[in-house]
Design a protein around this nucleic acid. Structure first.
Length: 567
RNA sequence: CGGGAAGUAGCGCAGCUUGGUAGCGCGCAGCGUUCGGGACGCUGAGGCCGCGGGUUCAAGUCCCGCCUUCCCGACCA
């Protein structure tokens, strides 16, 4: 492509509202343009990156035995009522009213794919099947941000597997998981698969594919020794050193702390009473209930958050009324097991000898509450959100927390969707109707260019790995107005490379050299060949590697072959 | 949804305190000079000063309301 014909203009300055470096560079270099908040156009260069990524995904998923199809973006609203997600996902759903009904703009396609393929998957003989699509998704995000990172309209490659048994589902999952490893390998991204929390989509085993990034919106815990890695939502810690050495001689003592029901207020109350403490000395006791309305108390230090086990929900105000021994804001673990409350303590609770805690009395807290002396627990385990330095659950090494971008997510769904859709069944070998065992798999296609740009840019601009670069080679002519022979020479190289099928961008613009060099660096094509009068007079072409910055001089007769081998 | 900031030419910004002809840089068009790392001169085009109302002889500027955007948080298959 000749740049004089390319519908693209680089910008010296990024829009003021672009914060992330990847966002600024993608806009400045002319890959994307904002149309609305969280809504971006892909310009000619940007769509080429996307096409490269799509091609990688197609090749790997096809090789894994998945079949491409294309589901609609418009879903009849009834389909979403059926699974209950019209309600549960109402925060992000966009709907459109049309003649004769309403449609949901698909934020994900479990409903649509089941409705589409189930007529053809009638028998166990028809399984297993995995289908995928590359589709635009719509989510009314609370806060779109960081350019392509979090948008309201985005492109996802999503796949769905259908199997006849749990074992078969695991095989399909394993195959897709491997395909995902292949895909991210080919994007050259340093990613890491982590164990993840299943969240609202439901299901059991699942993994997120994370890329470490300073603008990531996720965190995962990683063990430097054994390789354990899990999303912060799912990460567990191991047992620490139980501290019994400095158990105070003093007995537990009740203090009046009127109105102090938050961690912050309680700390302040004790401080004004002369105790030099911070929130880590306070025992946070949070009450939850299960489906039988049985109460569970979870204990974590006051400076930590509870990682709520699945199946437990926080008590409502009504629940507090029906459990009159629970004083919201003043709960402590003392005597709770006698009330039939199950008490779970995080490992970190056992690491401290004595605690300040709620007194189970309105307006009162206690000091010197000691585990196994003043209160009992049913189980000590990993019940807090893990923190930097917590011991690894596998090997005990200190965990570190990594900020990251989620570029893919794979789920073993089991029956969580097929159970909700009556016709999501097949005839089993024994003649009974059975539900599909499903898996689903997603890659944020439009997020990937941002993640890649974020990871590989330097101070001069973008640097694309070859596998996703919009062009493999950029030719830059120098002083075209004055050097017709150099231009003719460049034209010839361009034509030859073009005919060989090399993806070549040709900066044939009549601009000052500095501008063209700067643009080449900004755009980030991996190989830049500089064709100027001076070099040609010496019989050489200067070729710059955008990644390493290395420059080599290639002899004129060899230049075409050299550049071809770059691509 | 809570907190903060900002909307003036395609992009980056000044002007607002103290109301009186809407400006600068980049970019864009034309001409000329330059030409191996974002050159220079001259000429020119381009504006619903976010929207609506109010105050005033007069509003980009003051007052009220709304909208949009960005950042932090909450939320997030």
């Amino acid at each position: 492509m000749r740049m004089t014909r390319l519908a693209l203009k680089t910008q010296r300055e990024a829009p003021a509202d672009a914060e992330a470096v990847s966002h600024q560079l993608l806009i400045r270099a002319g890959y994307i343009r904002r149309l609305a908040s969280g809504v971006y156009s892909f310009l000619p260069l940007g769509i080429r990156v996307l096409a490269k990524l799509n091609q990688i995904v197609r090749e790997e998923l096809d090789a894994a035995g998945a079949q491409e199809l294309l589901l609609p973006a418009l879903h009849p609203v009834e389909l979403w009522e059926q699974t209950g997600r019209l309600r549960t996902m109402s925060d992000v759903l966009m709907t459109v009213e049309v003649k004769g009904g309403s449609f949901v703009l698909g934020p994900t396609h479990e409903e649509a794919v089941i409705a589409t393929v189930s007529p053809d998957l009638e028998s166990y003989r028809d399984l297993p099947v995995t289908v995928y699509q590359i589709q635009t998704k719509f989510r009314d995000e609370a806060r779109p941000r960081f350019g392509l990172m979090r948008t309201r309209e985005f492109i996802m490659a999503d796949a769905y597997s259908f199997d006849m048994s749990a074992e078969a589902m695991k095989i399909s999952y394993g195959r897709m998981y491997q395909a995902y490893l292949n895909i991210f390998d080919r994007c050259d991204l340093p990613y890491i698969p982590v164990e993840a929390d299943s969240g609202a989509i439901g299901g059991d085993v699942n993994h997120e594919f994370m890329v470490s990034s300073p603008i990531g919106e996720d965190h995962f815990a990683q063990c430097p020794k054994c390789g354990y890695a899990a999303n912060i939502e799912a990460a567990k810690r191991g047992e620490g050193v139980r501290n019994r050495s400095d158990v105070p001689a003093e007995k537990m003592e009740v203090h009046a702390t009127p109105g102090a029901s938050s961690i912050k207020d309680v700390v302040n109350a004790f401080r004004s009473a002369g105790f030099e403490i911070d929130s880590s000395a306070l025992l946070k006791s949070l009450a939850f209930k299960d489906e039988n309305d049985d109460v569970t108390l979870i204990l974590v230090p006051g400076d930590r958050d509870v990682r709520v086990p699945s199946g437990l929900i926080p008590l409502s105000d009504d629940d507090f009324e029906s459990n009159s021994f629970l004083f919201k804001g003043f709960i402590g673990p003392m005597g709770m097991t006698d009330q039939g409350v199950k008490v779970l303590a995080d490992f970190s609770v056992a690491e401290r000898a004595s605690w300040f805690s709620g007194a189970n009395l309105e307006g009162h807290h206690v000091s010197n509450a000691v585990l196994d002396r003043d209160f009992a627990v049913d189980q000590v385990g990993s019940f807090a959100v893990v923190a930097e330095g917590d011991p690894c659950p596998n090997c005990g090494e200190m965990l570190s927390l990594v900020r990251s971008v989620e570029v893919g997510h794979t789920f073993q769904l089991g029956h969580s969707y097929s159970n909700k859709i009556p016709y999501a069944t097949f005839k089993a070998e024994d003649g009974t109707d059975q539900k599909y065992w499903m898996g689903c798999y997603g890659i944020g296609m439009s997020r990937l260019p941002a993640a890649i740009a974020e990871h590989f840019h330097d101070s001069d601009g973008l640097r694309w790995p070859r596998s996703v670069a919009p062009y493999q080679v950029e030719l830059v002519t120098i002083t075209p107005g004055r050097a017709p022979e150099a231009v003719a020479f460049a034209d010839d190289i361009y034509r030859q490379l073009w005919e060989m099928g090399v993806e070549v961008l040709y900066d044939d613009r009549d601009l000052a050299p500095g501008v063209k060099f700067a643009d080449a660096d900004l755009i980030g094509i991996p190989t830049i060949a500089i064709i100027g009068q001076r070099g040609i007079a010496n019989g050489v072409i200067e070729v710059k590697d955008r990644f390493s910055g290395d420059r080599v001089e290639v002899r004129v007769p060899e230049i075409v072959e050299y550049l071809r081998n770059c691509g």
